[in-house]
Amino acid sequence: MRLTILAALAVFALDQWTKIAVVHWMNLRHLGTIEVLPPWITFRMAWNYGVNFGLFADHSPATRWVLVALALAVSAWVLWWVRHDQGRAVRLFAGMLVGGALGNVVDRILYGAVADFLNVTCCGIDNPFAFNVADIAIFIGAAGLVFTHRGHNSR
């Protein structure tokens, strides 16, 4: 469980630090766009009121708090579930997922939406979506859990 907590704390800290650095110190919230490594990497401010890719986006306070409650419930369930699994990779991926989810929860509480700013474009495709470190960790954590978890009966 220690690895899970350390991974969650590391992801959470990195996520919040990058948001403070880019959104506030680099003033992305007012500039809107900063070219980092054109044309591949751009910081593009996007306030996500929904879930991935803005699905279920709704500016209502009810939606905001439902998504906060859902992220907290999923995080609590993952922490409860992973305490039974002794695999190092599973504990690491669980921590990544939880740290990312909690990073986005803090955004919803502080700003009312998730602060997304990373925009990656490649190969002539104009990507309209932005994401953040928490989103990356949630994706890697969830995918890692799917591919590395051993069922309780397989031990």
Rank of each mutant, 00 (worst) to 15 (best):
H152A: 14
V36T: 07
P61K: 08
L110N: 02
D85E: 15
M96L: 15
V78Y: 00
F43R: 01
H149V: 07
A115C: 07
W47Y: 15
P128H: 09
G87E: 12
T121A: 15
T42Q: 09
I34V: 14
L6R: 02
L37S: 02
R108Y: 07
H152I: 02
V120W: 11
A7P: 00
Y111I: 00
F43P: 03
L118D: 05
L6W: 11
A142Q: 04
R150L: 04
I125Q: 10
A76T: 06
R83I: 07
V105P: 01
A13V: 13
A10D: 00
A13D: 01
A137C: 14
N48K: 13
N119L: 08
L6E: 01
V51E: 11
L92E: 03
Q86M: 06
A137V: 07
I140C: 10
G50V: 05
N127I: 08
P39A: 07
S154R: 06
W81V: 10
G124L: 11
L145A: 13
T148K: 09
Y49S: 10
H59I: 05
F56M: 13
D85C: 10
L72F: 05
A73N: 07
A137P: 13
F53M: 12
N52F: 08
L28C: 10
I136A: 15
R91G: 12
V36P: 06
A46D: 11
D116W: 09
L3V: 04
R83C: 08
A71I: 06
G112I: 08
G112S: 11
W80S: 14
W80Q: 14
G100D: 09
R44K: 11
D85P: 01
G112Y: 10
A57Y: 03
Y111G: 00
A137S: 15
W81Y: 15
A76K: 06
L28A: 01
D126K: 11
D15Q: 02
I125H: 13
I125Y: 15
V105W: 03
D58C: 07
P128S: 14
L97E: 11
V114N: 12
S154G: 01
A113L: 05
K19L: 02
R44G: 07
G54T: 12
